[in-house]
Design a protein around this nucleic acid. Sequence first.
DNA 1: ATTACTAAAGATCGAGTAT
DNA 2: TATACTCGATCTTTAGTAA
Lengths: 208, 208
Amino acid sequence: MDEILIFLLRHGAHNTRLRMSTAQIGQELGMSQQNASRKLMCLEQAGMVKRDRSGISLTQKAMDDIADLKALLNNAFEPKLEMHGRIVKGLGEGRFYLSQDGYIKQMKEKLGFEPYPGTLNIRLDREGIDARRRMLQLEPLIIDGFEKDGRRFGELFAYRANAGSIDCAIVVPLRTHHGNDMIEVMAPVNLRKTLRKKEGDIVTLKIL
Amino acid sequence: MDEILIFLLRHGAHNTRLRMSTAQIGQELGMSQQNASRKLMCLEQAGMVKRDRSGISLTQKAMDDIADLKALLNNAFEPKLEMHGRIVKGLGEGRFYLSQDGYIKQMKEKLGFEPYPGTLNIRLDREGIDARRRMLQLEPLIIDGFEKDGRRFGELFAYRANAGSIDCAIVVPLRTHHGNDMIEVMAPVNLRKTLRKKEGDIVTLKIL
DNA sequence: ATTACTAAAGATCGAGTAT
DNA sequence: TATACTCGATCTTTAGTAA
């Protein structure tokens, strides 16, 4: 289906009514006239395409969909966000949260790794605070909240990142008590040990 | 097939090896584990995806394809190029070239209209020359060259455009004897007459 | 010339299951 | 656990043809 939309876009059907027979379209896409005709009918029914005697054109709805795809692709290729900060002592809360099955299961699914139980707490430098703000504009991986033993575990936003060459993720609780200069990082391993760092050392994070 | 590529991209398989089972992928995409497995195999065979024990990743080939699509989409949303110039007398060459079946057939196919035999010759103003340069950066519609009666007809680059509200195309021969302030415009109709213009009048072209 | 219906061929899918 | 095979069901495509 997409194939036809991209074809129409490539032929300028977003600006111009495209005057082209279903036979021609079929030929260019390596399919039969009948198939091109049927697909065009489907797209019309789905409100993606309009046809009248002056030609074929893409609707706003189609363009919205295409714009979404465009945003996704641009994001994937964009230069990565980078931030620096110093390791600070955490309150051991990270360890507690990352021991909850309700979180672990989702993280494994959505991030592709099982988090080491414990987060690295980083206090960002000035540019880091800016980068954090820009990071929050990105589409987060959402870790759903849940209830357990009468206690509420809130929704988390996670952003894939790199520390050194270690895949990790920056976690932002939806309601946080941290200041905007603080981030928590989780990884499949004990980051502090693997990176051979101690409290006060500088860590660089690349957001993916 | 595309669906899986986009999914992998969305999950960062261009930076990170994605550790995710075919069952998980299937579930997230609303298809069976078996189907996800099979599609992944196809993509692997097509050289779009690599898999090893550390996870799934997109190959350069896949990224190239995605980059092409990205370029197309960005182009589609970009503000259109516009150029102005004055009608000048042609040498009647346009008429000769646009009477060649070898060209006509392709133009009908690739531009969606059969060109009126004759081009409008335009001398661009200063900004127009700039716009022309930017136009040449765009992806052209390529009209292949051919041989006929022992004579060589060269490859042409064409760019869809609008003059007034008339769909047309700017044609650039690959080896041109024109200066960089000249363009030739072809359309399904006699442009000069339809626009009610004469030599020396100003014409505005919007590149699509 | 065009578009689109029908019916049969062909491709794709999911359930069950082997590895 | 995991991936991937077979096979019958289902969806898609084409050829033929009507409109």
